[in-house]
């Protein structure tokens, strides 16, 4: 059995994530953003702003 916590800088990940119930939906959206970006419909520089717009829309519809 490896001692994962003894791997120095390669430590076992043990931090609480910012996981909410809406994560599965957000991850699905992230996949769509990735597709848009890869196919040239979304510039990387525009990604964060568009993402914030998406979050705002989702909150409006809560």
């Amino acid at each position: 059995m490896p001692k994962l916590t003894d791997r120095g800088p390669q430590q076992f990940p043990n931090w609480a994530p910012e996981v909410g119930p809406d994560w599965p939906l957000l991850m699905k959206k992230l996949g769509l953003f990735w597709t848009d970006w890869r196919q040239g419909r979304l510039a990387l520089a525009d990604w964060p702003a568009r993402w914030n717009g998406l979050l705002a829309d989702l909150q409006l519809h809560d």
Partner: peptide, 23 residues
């Protein structure tokens, strides 16, 4: 990255590297 206020990560030093994946 799923949250908000991630600022300008799309224009940081890694953007060029990420953009090599486009196409």
């Amino acid at each position: 990255l799923l949250g908000d206020s991630q600022g300008t990560w799309g224009t940081g030093s890694s953007a060029a590297m990420l953009n090599t994946l486009r196409g």
